[in-house]
Design a protein around this nucleic acid. Structure first.
Lengths: 221, 221
DNA sequence: ATTTATTTTTAGATTTGTCTAAAAATAAAT
DNA sequence: ATTTATTTTTAGACAAATCTAAAAATAAAT
């Protein structure tokens, strides 16, 4: 059966998914708050999602996404994150400007569009915030993101995001060819200033200050 | 005042614009037919557009877009055609697959998104169907499209579209570096087979058969 | 174990965009 | 110039998504 949900339904599905991920538990009020709406509206929609088998919902008891609802959520998130990647990588948006626009783009439901966009972008694994992008089958690289400063020595990792978005830092990183997706490992941690000696796959090594190493988020491979 | 219309409103505005362009006159039934809806629904929406000063509407007498409505229409068309260009040029969609998707993308109303997309695409002047793309001020290169076969000798023109979408023809054209946007002129028309001798801006000349010259649509410069 | 507070759901109204069926205005035809 | 046909508009209903206010269920507190 062809999945085809309204924009409102998709926003609920996505919010439930995120709240489940973040807190394990979701309740009506939390969801209403997250969606900037009222609890009564949430109840109405829960019943609708239940009727569509996207949700396991027992009045007053609680609710969570069904297997099918989960699948739908993952595909919405795939669309959102691919568009975010596009906006930053191709259109050169800043990281703080993309969310709103991606929020609209994510609702364009053409499987072909998204798969072709994915191909065009080079099958990126992480969006500009470092969150993993589900593949076309809905598989997600589970991410255990940590600051580069906390990465064990000699453990390979991939850069997934940078917390500090200052132009100075971004310019510094780009001058060193450090970007999201760069693979590196720490060869040494220098105790007197907490700077780290990192080595790229091309064997080149450079030294990074503690502040920078804390801002760079990585995902161990 | 920030223009912000619903998707339904935008679809009406766009349809009225297109029908005005095509036939000069629009009436309620024609618009209902074009939008795949009913005349009563059209009347309702006309009143709403009138209230927003997008339309000059006199019940029973007729209606047409106001200056402001026209401006809105042009911006919607700009979005639609830029996305169509993107789909073909970047994502390699075929020309017959893009309309539906562009129909959805056109409603994402972020001026910044569209202007950045325009820049990314290299400020294209024509969409893949050869229709002109309005610039960010709403200015349109008015198009008097004609088959290359009918272009006068020694008159420069730009290729705006190709009628026949067969793979063979597209392959032939691409092997000769002929594409949408290519600037050329006819140096000679050979009467015995109606083939034409065309010359590119780089001074190179080749011969094109009558069939091909009829399929290539150009816009005189 | 009641009372009190919180959370969730119902009941009923509202807005947007649509519809059908009937009425009103305009156009065409005898 | 009436009658007939066509077009357009009104009137009233409906579905989706939302809201406020009140009721019901559950949880917390004395």
């Amino acid at each position: 059966m062809r999945a085809n949900f309204s924009i409102a339904e998709e926003n609920y599905i996505k919010s439930i998914y995120h709240l489940q991920q973040a807190t394990g538990e979701v309740n009506t009020n939390a969801l209403a708050n997250h969606l900037n709406t009222k609890a009564a509206s949430v109840t109405d929609m829960l019943k609708k999602l239940q009727a569509k088998n996207l949700l396991n919902y027992l009045p007053y008891k609680g609710f969570k996404l069904s297997r099918e609802g989960n699948k739908a959520a993952v595909m919405i998130i795939r669309r959102h994150r691919l568009w975010e990647f596009f906006l930053v990588d191709k259109l050169h948006f800043n990281w703080d400007e993309i969310h709103e626009v991606a929020e609209e783009l994510e609702h364009i439901r053409s499987k072909k569009l998204i798969d072709k966009l994915d191909e065009f972008l080079g099958y990126p694994k992480f969006d500009p915030h470092g969150d993993p992008i589900p593949d076309s089958n809905g598989k997600i690289d589970e991410l255990k993101q940590l600051p580069l400063a906390n990465l064990p020595v000699n453990k390979q990792a991939i850069i997934t995001s940078v917390l500090n978005q200052s132009n100075e830092l971004l310019a510094f990183l780009s001058s060193r060819n450090i970007a999201i997706g760069t693979v590196l490992e720490i060869k040494d941690k220098l105790p007197f200033d907490n700077s780290v000696e990192i080595k790229f796959k091309n064997k080149q090594s450079i030294n990074i200050s503690e502040q920078v190493a804390k801002a760079i988020q990585v995902n161990p491979l």
